[in-house]
Every structure is written in structure tokens, then in C-alpha cells.
Amino acid sequence: MSTDATQQEQGGGPDAAQEWRRWHEGRVVAVAAPYGPLSLTGTHWLSDYPEGRIPAVPGHWRENGDEVVLTAAAEDGLVVDGKLLTGEVALGADRGAIDDSRVARGERRLVVLRREGLWAVRDFDPGSPARHAFSTIEATPYDPRWALSGTFRPYGGDRTVRVANADGVERGLGLGGEIAFTVDGEEHTLQVAVEPDGSLWAVFADATSGNSSYRFRFLRPGAPAADGRVEVDFNRALLPPCAFADHFICPFPPPGNTLAAAVLAGERNRIDA
């Protein structure tokens, strides 16, 4: 029996499989883009450089309350808002696309980041070794068995739990509720954050994590319906950014978000040439 015929019997249909293939191809393109996650070559916390000099980044970077003051000379080659910086400028956290960041040096983009009151400078370089070594994302082909119906159960208020991050530091992770779904007749739940647009975000591990898949993954369901119904499609489980560059600070799964089931779906690992 053909794969498409099997999917039709199971309720997925060829359209869902084709849509997934387009999604997967788009993910590979986005990851390999000049300012995708593979181009991150460093996250430099200013608290580690109280004198203001970051060895890998030109200029002088100084915290000043709710802003960062960058001082540079012409020989530093730093461009801010499209103009060579000679002097100083106050910067806030960058919140848009990487290539829209205010500070650049040639093709590099220097992105100002703030987390839990601490400032950092991220260095994105399209010429990074990781980007040029990348081949593709290993992913399990679409399986309608993992396109599940779930229910979102909001908490009475936001909760914050402390979880380890990929850089070894513990940070707060905000959670707004949980999603419940059934796999092989058994109910499972995942705690989720609620994004500003109403969509959901889960950090989870499962029985494949650290074996046939990366040590944890992300899931991003859409906004729930008014009655709480939500699609829980593990075919679109994502590798976190730290699977592509060590300099991201991805949170590990919170307590309760490690599933006993083996989720044989979605992105599994980065593949280099």
C-alpha cells in the first residue's frame, strides 16, 4: 500500500503530508539563512566584561540602567542605523529581525539582548563555520497518528518556574496553562507558555530525547478555540535554537514536561555535511 493511501486510511490524507513537506523545506531554508540560528557565533554578557571590552566584538559596551551605551571609533568599523559610529550611542534591546538590528560590522549583526535584567551582545556572522557545515534537518516523515486533538486548560494566573538553560544558568520560565491530549488511549499533559498572539509554546522531552532525537524539543500549537480545543501536531515538533548553535540560552523542559511515550515525529537532529 502506498504511503499516501495509508495516510488517507488513517485520516491524514496526502494534502496534510504535502503541507508538512512544504513546512519542513521552509524550516531548512530558514535555519540556513544568512542570519538564521546557525550564524550565531557568540552571546557575550556585559556583566562578564565590567571594563566594557568584549574580546570578540569591537567597541566599548557599557550598561547604563535601561540601556546600553556603545562607544566606538572609526577604526572599529561599527555602523549604527546605517552610519559609521564615531562617538557614543544609547541602545535598547533589539526586538525585530536579526538583519534589522541597529548595529552592524560588515555582514555581521550585533544584537542587543536583555534577559532578567542582564544585558548581552549577540554576534551573528553569515560566514560562521556552523552555517557552512550544515546540510539539513533530520525529520520523521508526516504521520497522521501524531496530529492530535487536545484541550487547553489555562491556569488561574501566570506561573513562573525556575529551569536550567542550555548555558548552564537557571532562569524563570513563564507558564500560562497546560494542554491535554491522548496517545494510544493514555492522557498526557504539557505545560505551556501563552504567547502575546494567543498561540502556545511548550518545551518538552520524550522517550526518544538524547537517543534518536535531540535532548529536548519545542512545540508551538496555535491559539486555542474559545472552548479550549487546540491542535497538538507533533509532526511539527521543532529543534530548539541551541541545536544549531551553542550560544543560545534555550530553557530545558519544566518539571512534568518529559513524556513517557516515544514521540516518533517531527524534527529530530541537525545533520552536517
Results as ranks from 00 to 15, higher is better:
Pro126Ile: 06
Gly127Val: 01
Gly127His: 11
Gly127Ala: 12
Ser128Tyr: 04
Ser128Asp: 04
Pro129Trp: 03
Pro129Gly: 04
Pro129Asn: 08
Ala130Asp: 14
Arg131Phe: 01
Arg131Gln: 11
His132Gln: 11
Ala133Thr: 02
Ala133His: 10
Phe134Gly: 01
Phe134Lys: 04
Ser135Ala: 15
Ser135Cys: 14
Ser135Arg: 15
Thr136Ser: 15
Thr136Arg: 15
Glu138Val: 09
Ala139Ile: 07
Ala139Gly: 09
Pro141Thr: 04
Pro141Ser: 06
Pro141Arg: 04
Pro141Cys: 07
Tyr142Leu: 04
Asp143Trp: 06
Pro144Cys: 05
Pro144Val: 04
Pro144Ile: 06
Pro144Arg: 11
Trp146Arg: 03
Ala147Arg: 15
Leu148Phe: 00
Leu148Trp: 00
Ser149Met: 06
Ser149Tyr: 00
Gly150Gln: 05
Gly150Thr: 08
Gly150Ala: 08
Thr151Ile: 13
Phe152Ile: 07
Arg153Lys: 06
Pro154Arg: 10
Tyr155Gln: 11
Gly157Asp: 15
Asp158Tyr: 07
Asp158Pro: 11
Asp158Phe: 12
Thr160Gln: 12
Val161Pro: 08
Val161Phe: 05
Arg162His: 03
Val163Asp: 10
Val163Phe: 10
Ala164Ser: 14
Ala164Leu: 12
Asn165Val: 05
Ala166Gln: 14
Ala166Phe: 09
Ala166Tyr: 13
Ala166Ile: 07
Asp167Lys: 05
Asp167Val: 05
Val169Ala: 05
Val169Asp: 12
Val169Trp: 10
Glu170His: 09
Arg171Tyr: 09
Gly172His: 01
Gly172Arg: 04
Gly172Cys: 09
Gly172Lys: 02
Leu173His: 05
Gly174Lys: 09
Gly174Ser: 12
Leu175Ser: 01
Leu175Phe: 13
Leu175Glu: 10
Leu175Ile: 08
Gly176Ser: 15
Gly177Gln: 03
Ile179Tyr: 08
Ile179Lys: 06
Ala180Trp: 01
Phe181His: 09
Phe181Trp: 08
Phe181Cys: 07
Thr182His: 13
Val183Cys: 02
Val183Leu: 15
Val183Trp: 15
Asp184Phe: 06
Asp184Asn: 08
Glu187Pro: 15
Glu187Leu: 10
Glu187Lys: 10
His188Asn: 11
His188Gln: 12
His188Trp: 01
His188Tyr: 15
Thr189Gln: 12
Leu190Gly: 04
Leu190Gln: 12
Gln191Thr: 12
Gln191Lys: 14
Ala193Glu: 14
Ala193Gly: 14
Asp197Tyr: 02
Asp197Pro: 00
Asp197Ser: 01
Gly198Gln: 10
Gly198Trp: 00
Ser199Glu: 02
Ser199His: 01
Ser199Leu: 06
Ser199Asp: 07
Leu200Met: 11
Trp201Tyr: 08
Trp201Thr: 12
Trp201Leu: 13
Ala202Met: 00
Ala202Arg: 05
Phe204Leu: 13
Ala205Glu: 08
Ala205Gly: 13
Asp206His: 00
Asp206Thr: 00
Asp206Gln: 01
Ala207Pro: 01
Thr208Gly: 05
Ser209Met: 04
Ser209Lys: 02
Gly210Phe: 02
Gly210Val: 04
Gly210Asn: 03
Asn211Met: 08
Ser212Leu: 07
Ser213Gln: 03
Ser213Pro: 14
Phe216Leu: 05
Phe216Glu: 07
Arg217Lys: 05
Arg217Ser: 10
Arg217Val: 01
Leu219Cys: 03
Leu219Asn: 10
Arg220Val: 12
Arg220Leu: 09
